[in-house]
């Protein structure tokens, strides 16, 4: 049983990075595809399209930070379950927010191509999603401090 909890602990330790990387790559693919398409139909402003399409890359960075905060000198039955729970749940948050951020960024790029003046405000939903990722990061860090070493 103890070995199983240790396995779960290692799984939880790496989950934020793995799920964050998947979310970021998925989100960047969606937003990046929109940016490439928009460049085909635009005579300028390519930089801002590509720039915003990179926004979902923050999820993997948050995942790396969470992983370091969860890291312990040893993973055992005392801390394995906590590492698993915090790691997997924060990782799942990074995964979903990364994908959804990519989707809303694609919509924002598509809409602002037709109406350039809404470019800034159209990024608001993506910024809100970024905020949710930050919440997950901050509270994962807070809880990580109470996990036994």
């Amino acid at each position: 049983m103890n070995e199983f909890i240790v396995v779960l602990g290692w799984f939880g330790l790496y989950a934020p990075v793995a799920f964050g990387a998947i979310g970021s790559s998925w989100g960047c693919t969606l937003a990046g595809s929109a940016a490439i398409g928009a460049m085909l139909d635009s005579d300028g402003g390519y930089g801002r399209f590509v720039g915003v399409s990179l926004m979902p890359s923050s999820q993997v960075i948050y995942g790396i930070v969470i992983m370091f905060s969860l890291q312990r000198s040893s993973i055992d039955a005392a801390n394995g379950a906590a590492l698993f729970a915090i790691g997997v749940l924060s990782g799942a948050t990074m995964l979903l927010t990364g994908i959804r951020q990519g989707e809303v960024l694609a919509s924002a790029i598509n809409a602002s191509k037709a109406k350039p003046e809404i470019f800034g405000i159209s990024l608001a939903p993506a910024a809100v999603l970024e905020g949710f990722s930050v919440f997950a990061l901050v509270f994962a860090l807070v809880l990580a401090g109470s996990i036994p070493a």
Binding site: L30, S33, A38, I109, K113, K115
Partner: peptide
């Protein structure tokens, strides 16, 4: 794949 439709749709100008 969804991202390919995203690219196609965003490459079409607003009517």
């Amino acid at each position: 794949r969804p991202h390919q439709y995203i690219m196609l749709v965003t490459s079409l100008p607003h009517l």
